[in-house]
Design a binder for these strands. Structure first.
Lengths: 231, 231
DNA sequence: CTGTTTTTGTCACGTTGTTGTCACAATCGC
DNA sequence: GCGATTGTGACAACAACGTGACAAAAACAG
């Protein structure tokens, strides 16, 4: 009952090498040679991670990635993209696909293994914190189970959106979240449009959190970050 | 599923020798006898490295090199130039062509093999560091995930541009970056114009990095370099 | 079903931070 | 020393962000 990794790749040699190494590391593997069978495999059993080649015989890996991101039950499944170098990295990790990481081909297998482990560790931490029913950061208390937030002794009334925004920031604290990522994961829209929506809500959230608002740092030109340590 | 190397060269003997040795080293090879077929080969499959003779029957190797550098998807592909002696080394490694390295003909094949390996290793290290979420060089700490920079215990506030500039320099540390390259990769402008922009921002970056500013070396007449070892 | 309240997206404006350019000083290589 | 190149500080144009206001949309209550 190990973690299952779905490999979507059509080069037989590479598939073999990946399967061998991943199984060596104690993961279960499943292979799909094209986009269509990838979707079928995903429908069948939800993997802990998808390793996805962008170049597939029948459809673009980007489409597969988008499909995963649009499927409610798959949304949280991390995706590691294999790509030839130069293939517009921004679009891969940014709004367009929403991959969690990528490796440039040709790559050494050890590097990929490191990346796989890093992603799974991260996603485990995130899902763990999601399932934790309580959390404290400084004066900020979040009760996920009860859907309640407290600053010091004072209960804070957050709107659903504000709560969601705080949750994403807090669970990923210490890592800067771009506006694109926030729009995707909180608002559920794929937009490159320049909108002040994120900023406005960030401002409201900051105001409601009072002294804890200072934990939210602005990263100019990029987005926002919930500090990992006392500001 | 080895790394593919494209050889662009018209001398049959040399081609044969190169192919043999490169395959011996475990690389896949593909040959183009002139510039036109080189471009076609590039369009077809992106190689991990291009070995390019400057003297071609139909067009100059420099043109091929420039084409690669102008193509969005090829930009990062390293190019190793073969040249008869004296052929304006500056223009080859400098802005005009943007080659990564060059070998003067006649050369010993072993040396070329060394260069090839060195270039490929470098480009792999680069792509690896591109995703690292943290990095330390002397007193300089860069947290890519958090988008933060620290010198010693002190947090340094960098503007988006300064951050980008530092990132490019650090990831390519040990190698001089010409102003043209920096303008292209940081500013995203193709300019042969003489501007003091790079210098000014380099100065600001140096000032903000305090003692770590000394890691940034000026290369007169060319550009700047982030030292690979303690200055 | 209707009126009320809450939530949310958008806008405009002011403020602050950022960046390109320039003039001039300092420095380097010869 | 001389010319070319780079460092440095000042500054104005510009872009990004914070903030408050407002109206549309959604949720809610009666």
């Amino acid at each position: 009952m190990n973690e299952l990794i779905l490999i979507v790749e059509d080069e037989a040699d590479l598939v073999q090498s990946l399967e061998y190494n991943l199984q060596q590391q104690g993961y279960d593997t499943r292979v799909a040679l094209d986009g269509q069978s990838a979707l079928e495999a995903l429908d069948e059993k939800r993997p802990a991670l998808v390793v996805l080649d962008l170049m597939l015989p029948d459809m673009s890996g980007l489409e597969v990635c988008r499909w995963i991101r649009n499927e409610e039950t798959m949304r949280a499944t991390p995706v590691l993209i294999l790509t030839a170098r130069g293939e517009e990295i921004d679009r891969i990790t940014g709004f367009e696909a929403g991959a969690d990481d990528y490796v440039v081909k040709p790559f050494c297998v050890d590097e990929l293994m490191l990346r796989v482990r890093a992603i799974l560790r991260r996603s485990q931490v995130e899902s763990q914190e999601l399932h934790a029913d309580k959390m404290q950061i400084g004066d900020l208390f979040i009760d996920f189970a009860a859907h309640r937030v407290r600053v010091g002794e004072k209960e804070v009334e957050l709107t659903p959106l504000e709560y969601q925004l705080l949750k994403v920031l807090v669970i990923r604290r210490g890592r800067t979240q771009s506006r694109e990522v926030l729009l995707r994961d909180v608002w559920d829209i794929e937009a490159e449009v320049m909108t002040r929506t994120v900023d406005t809500h960030m401002q409201r959230l900051r105001a409601k959190l009072e002294q804890c608002g200072e934990w939210i740092a602005t990263v100019r030109g990029v987005g926002y970050r919930f500090e990992a340590e006392e500001p």
